[in-house]
């Protein structure tokens, strides 16, 4: 009796141990590349942000001086302001266009698939290519300005969209929006297709128009998606890099600088890798802070968002 019951647990333990080993082997590749590329260098960045590292070997501990320098750096503050303006733009313009496109698509049957593909095409085009497309269209010598004046409309004749510091940031944001909003249409549409049709029928019985249907049924029903995308918009707006770097490199005279381009310059042209690491850590903190703030509002203050 004792003999027979003693054997299976030992075997089972062995099998459990072997099962654990297999499990670790299966997840090992993911963990190895992740630690090597993300976690390891991420932690090193935190360390280097407290040093005066030049990007090569020299790294002396300087405590918080990179961070205090950041706060006093007019370039950093201007870039932060541009990121905030960028956030507001992307929370308003592409979100509205995405909601409008998705709501209209959800109400038609014929051509829905075609419109969805057309709206989504800019999103699959590489950033470099869409930046190039728009650089040409906005070019003061061979773009829309000269084209209009050929037609006798000299409206945009002397407008240099990407070369004029007053409007360059808006132009870059406009170009980024061209690629971005169609993605939002597709996501919002997928969320809207999950809404119970009986809700709309009930509203129609009450004689609600399209606007009231959108406001009272569609928007509340897709609120989780809407909030998630708003959250992502805030995070991505602080990390924007590609379009600014390709189109203006932060210029003219810093008028389109964002945190990422300031960081890139510090790291790779000014040999201030410690300072750049501090900006990188700030960016990660902004992302984390946004998520935590959202969770705090939802979980602790029980905001219904």
């Amino acid at each position: 009796m004792i003999k027979t019951s003693a054997r299976p647990p030992a075997r089972r333990r062995r099998r459990v141990a072997r099962g654990k080993l297999t499990a670790w082997l299966f997840i090992a590749p993911l963990l190895i590349v992740n630690v090597l590329v993300i976690a390891g260098p991420g932690l090193m960045s935190v360390y280097y942000s407290f040093t005066d590292w030049d990007g090569l070997d020299q790294a002396d501990f300087v405590w918080f001086s990179n961070y205090t320098d950041l706060i006093g750096d007019p370039d950093f503050r201007r870039a932060l302001l541009h990121n905030l303006l960028w956030t507001v733009f992307f929370l308003v313009v592409p979100m509205s266009m995405g909601l409008l496109g998705a709501f209209l698509l959800s109400r038609i049957r014929r051509g829905q698939l075609l419109f969805r593909v057309l709206f989504f095409i800019p999103y699959v085009i590489a950033t470099v290519v869409s930046a190039t497309v728009w650089r040409q269209i906005l070019s003061p010598t061979s773009g829309i300005g000269p084209a209009l004046s050929n037609l006798g409309i000299p409206l945009l004749d002397d407008v240099n969209f990407l070369g004029d510091g007053d409007i360059a940031l808006g132009a870059v944001a406009f170009i980024n929006n061209w690629q971005w909003w169609g993605f939002l249409v597709v996501i919002f549409l997928a969320a809207m297709q999950g809404i119970e049709p009986s809700l709309y029928e009930a509203a129609r019985m009450d004689g609600a128009g399209a606007w009231r249907e959108f406001w009272n049924i569609t928007l509340p029903s897709i609120r989780p998606t809407f909030m998630f995308l708003s959250l992502m918009t805030v995070i991505w707006s602080f990390l924007v890099f590609d379009y600014v770097y390709i189109l203006t490199q932060g210029g003219p005279a810093g008028s389109t600088d964002v945190l990422s381009t300031v960081m890139y310059r510090a790291a790779f042209s000014e040999q201030q890798a410690g300072y750049a690491s501090a900006i990188g850590v700030m960016l990660a903190l902004i992302s984390a802070g946004t998520v935590c703030g959202y969770l705090y509002l939802r979980r602790r203050l029980r905001w219904d968002i």
Partner: peptide, 21 residues
């Protein structure tokens, strides 16, 4: 949880030390 955190960390955080590594 680790995957969620790792996929949301910005590239900018680890870019400079990664290049040196």
């Amino acid at each position: 949880l680790y995957l969620l955190v790792a996929s949301s960390l910005p590239i900018q955080l680890f870019l400079v030390p990664l290049l040196s590594l």
